[in-house]
Design a protein around this nucleic acid. Sequence first.
DNA 1: ATGCCACCAATTGTATACAGAAACCTCCAG
DNA 2: CTGGAGGTTTCTGTATACAATTGGTGGCAT
Lengths: 214, 214
Amino acid sequence: MRASDKAYEALRTDIVEWRLRPGAMLGEVEQAERLGVSRTPLREALARLVADGLAIQERGRGAMVSDVSLQHVDNLFALRRALEIESARIAAHTADPAVFAALSARFLEAGRSATIETRESFFQLAGELDRSIDAAVANPYIEQALRSLRVHLARIRRLAQDDPERLATSAIEHASIAAAIAARNPDVAAAATQLHLHHSLEHIKNHAGSREDT
Amino acid sequence: MRASDKAYEALRTDIVEWRLRPGAMLGEVEQAERLGVSRTPLREALARLVADGLAIQERGRGAMVSDVSLQHVDNLFALRRALEIESARIAAHTADPAVFAALSARFLEAGRSATIETRESFFQLAGELDRSIDAAVANPYIEQALRSLRVHLARIRRLAQDDPERLATSAIEHASIAAAIAARNPDVAAAATQLHLHHSLEHIKNHAGSREDT
DNA sequence: ATGCCACCAATTGTATACAGAAACCTCCAG
DNA sequence: CTGGAGGTTTCTGTATACAATTGGTGGCAT
């Protein structure tokens, strides 16, 4: 693996998992020494982070971890609506019903046994649905836009305080999306996605947690 | 201006305007000498092109200008539908009616006097509409996704053989979009955008030109 | 006391030198 | 004549040295 890739992955993970907080300065020399690479590959990594929108370049002072606020969350969900609803629609046209029927069943099962311990496995299952939709959409342009979007979503996930109740509801909503795609019904798939996004956003806005942990 | 920015702009323009054809290899040393910069900033420029999807990294052989085909056009328009329809919808909620009413009138005027000579001024007007919608949407995430999209659209524009008739029709379609936004009617704005995209895609697919010019 | 200018320190931006890896060509063997 | 292996060559990937720009700080003048 290239050193620049290693540096990029490390920095992105640190930012997404809030080890590098918004506003933190990313000095080239400092980060290069911390990650054990030279300034050249680290510079490339920083450029990619800026392109992703995870950092912004502060002229003369280096790169800074970009800010997150509820206003940003609204903006992010507007993009999410545009991309995910259309993706669900397309997937409902092209998907293999068996794959999504199976996913739907697994979501229903996850919804029945939702506790705070199953949180990680639930997110993994949601990731599987994402990948299955990507595969059904089969559109590299949409895929790239979604990949960029999901990085930001993973970062603001920490803003939401997930309780078992919300996880269970979310699982059922995911199950509905998968079921609609399996049924090859684009309108229902779009509606289920829109409903899920609405509830998800409402939950974040109503249960925005403080950031004093970690 | 930084040397890396200069190299990026130069290469992007060369690719968008088909001076660098799909499949062309972009050797670091060769391009660095051609553009009069060192390998380090050129490398950064190449990384940005790869991130944009205008080039793909060929392991061991450097970067290659990415391919364009009718299949890619379909994929690109699927993303365009997702982003532009939602953008039109949002703009119809927030826009200043006066701005878009004026744009609509200018599009109608452009549609009446459409010749092959007014082609460039028409594209400039379309660009103004894009920027006005961006300003109304006021969403950096969507804006970035649209910016990336428009680079690809500018490249495939050369695939379409624009005749005065299509330019006139397109102007009227743009006028409808602007008018719907001015009227603050999201559904009509979305419908007008969808119609425009459909016609635009149909035109490209039916009139795909050969690429033996320039 | 406050505002402005100049200097200084630190950080980014660029260039070049070096190392490692991959592709191509050549030569040999079957 | 064809296939494979080894070497050569050219490329990318990395490190480091140097230059230029910028932000901060201190002093001076008003």
